[in-house]
Every structure is written in structure tokens, then in C-alpha cells.
């Protein structure tokens, strides 16, 4: 087919712009801001990188970001898996479509909107605090926003649909007969769930987990709105370097380090997924 090369042109142009942007930005990360102007000046050097890795505050933010992303990922798995299981296996059509509809709607209704929704719900005058007070669980309003709790709740709400939709397809593709066979052989519902369904879907759990992790590690709008300046993740740190300190070269260097860390952790997830798939499906088996 001759027209094939032509068909790849739009993609090639867009990818060239993308990688071109990264080349420029990689280069800028070795420069220094020219004082008083928006430009940069040489000579190229590693000063920005040295500054990042020797700054305890910057390293602490990077570390906190990773730990926080891991916690959000684990929480998404713990809540998202049973949710996807109900969606795939509930005998009632209404339940299945209601949950799927709610999930897709949540998934499509923007991040700023949802961060704002949580701001209303979790604030000092918010509904959650009202409910807690009315139930007598607390005797004065608890601080649920402008701290880690608020960012965590909102971010979990953001990542949950991604995870649940990823494993949903996988659970549905497990033939019902496999579970029935286990039940017929005397396994209880609990045993069947943990020894049959969950192990078969491990690759989907890992790839859903990788997706959630990469979303959580790059969270920006949620800490910005719900963190109230107290919770800063690495994305917010980079933003501040640019818009508070006006230091694009240092922001670029921080971004390069962040990108390397993000890709390294994702590779770890892919390696885990391959490992899990290979162990379950002996050789040449269909996925």
C-alpha cells in the first residue's frame, strides 16, 4: 500500500512537536534564568539538578508525592475492585447500570468541578461536618479540607472510576462457569472470590493500579484547590517555580527528575504485570 506513509504524516508532525518540546525543555534545564528578562543564559551546567537533589525540601515533596500516590492506589484497589465486581456480577440489571452510569458520569465530569464539589462537602460549613455533628460523632467541626484528608478524598474520587472501569472488563471476561465450578466443589462465596476471581484478574488489577498511580503522582488541581497551600505535591512545586519564582530552567530540571521517577515507577508496574501474567498463563496461552 503506497499511501501508507502519507497517513502517518499528521501523527509524525504531532509527535515531532511533542518530542521537540521535550528536547528544548531538556536543554533549558541546563541553563540559568537571565536576571531581569524572561530569557535564559549559559553556560550550560548541572547546577539546577544539583540544587534539586541537595534541597531537602524539594526531595521531601517528591518523597511525599510518591508515598501519597501509593496510598491512593491501594485505596482505589480496595474500594474499586469490589465495586467493579458488583457491576460485573450483580444479578440485578438496575444495580449494574446504575453503578456503571454513575461511574461514567463521574469519569466525564471534570476535575476542577469535582474538586469544587468536595470543597463544598468537606468545608467547615459542609454537609459532611454537619452530618458528623448531628450524629454526635464529633463535638466540633473537623478540618477536612486544606489538609491531606481533603486532597486524599477528592483524588480517590477522581481515580476510582479509572480503576473500576479497567478491572470491570476483566472480571466480566472470567467465565461464570469457573466460579460455579468452584462453588460446586464446595468452596464458599468468600473462598471463590479470593481464590478464583481475584487471582485470575491480577494482571488487570496491576494495570489499573499503574493507571491510578500515574494519575495520582501527577495530581495538580486537587492539591491546588483542596490543599490550601499546605499540601503541595511535586506538580504544585514545579508550578510555583514557574509562576512564583519565575525560574523556568529550575522548573524544567525539576520536571526532568519528576519524569524520570514517574517513568521508573511505571516500568516497575509493567514488569510486575508481565511477571503476574507469565505466572498465570504458562506459555503461549491466550490472554
Amino acid at each position: 500500500m503506497k499511501g501508507g506513509a502519507l497517513l502517518l504524516v499528521p501523527m509524525a508532525v504531532l509527535m515531532a512537536l511533542f518530542f521537540g518540546a521535550f528536547a528544548v525543555f531538556g536543554f533549558v534545564s541546563f541553563l540559568q534564568p537571565a536576571s531581569g528578562t524572561p530569557g535564559y543564559q549559559g553556560p550550560p551546567g548541572l547546577a539546577n539538578y544539583v540544587r534539586f537533589v541537595t534541597d531537602p525540601a524539594a526531595l521531601a515533596i517528591l518523597g511525599e508525592t510518591i508515598v501519597f500516590a501509593v496510598v491512593v492506589t491501594l485505596a482505589s484497589i480496595l474500594l474499586g475492585y469490589p465495586l467493579a465486581y458488583i457491576m460485573a456480577r450483580s444479578p440485578y440489571r438496575v444495580v449494574r447500570s446504575l453503578l456503571l452510569g454513575a461511574l461514567v458520569l463521574t469519569f466525564l465530569s471534570g476535575s476542577i468541578n469535582r474538586a469544587y464539589g468536595w470543597l463544598i462537602l468537606l468545608g467547615r460549613r459542609g454537609v459532611v461536618n454537619d452530618a458528623l455533628l448531628a450524629l454526635g460523632l464529633v463535638d466540633r467541626p473537623v478540618a477536612l479540607v486544606y489538609n491531606w484528608t481533603g486532597v486524599f478524598i477528592a483524588l480517590l474520587h477522581f481515580t476510582l472510576p479509572y480503576f473500576a472501569l479497567t478491572v470491570f472488563g476483566s472480571i466480566r471476561s472470567v467465565p461464570m462457569q469457573v466460579e460455579e465450578a468452584a462453588r460446586d466443589l464446595g468452596a464458599g462465596a468468600f473462598t471463590t472470590f479470593f481464590r478464583i476471581t481475584v487471582p485470575i484478574t491480577v494482571p488487570a488489577i496491576i494495570s489499573g493500579g499503574a493507571l491510578v498511580f500515574s494519575l495520582a503522582i501527577s495530581a495538580f488541581a486537587f492539591p491546588l484547590l483542596l490543599g490550601g497551600g499546605r499540601v503541595r505535591l511535586i506538580s504544585n512545586y514545579i508550578y510555583d517555580q514557574l509562576f512564583v519564582a519565575f525560574n523556568l530552567p529550575f522548573a524544567a530540571a525539576s520536571s526532568v527528575i519528576f519524569l524520570v521517577v514517574a517513568i521508573a515507577t511505571l516500568c516497575l508496574f509493567f514488569w510486575l504485570e508481565r511477571f503476574a501474567t507469565r505466572r498465570r498463563i504458562p506459555r503461549g496461552g491466550a490472554a
Binding site: F18, A21, F22, V24, F25, S214, I217, S218, F220, S235, I238, Y239, L242, L248, A251, A252, S255, F258, L259, A262, I263, L266
Partner: peptide, 10 residues
Amino acid sequence: IVPGVVTGVA
């Protein structure tokens, strides 16, 4: 796989 802020800065 590139975080949004990094794409933005680039």
C-alpha cells in the same frame, strides 16, 4: 504517561 504539568512546562 507524562504528567500534565511536565507536558505544560515542556
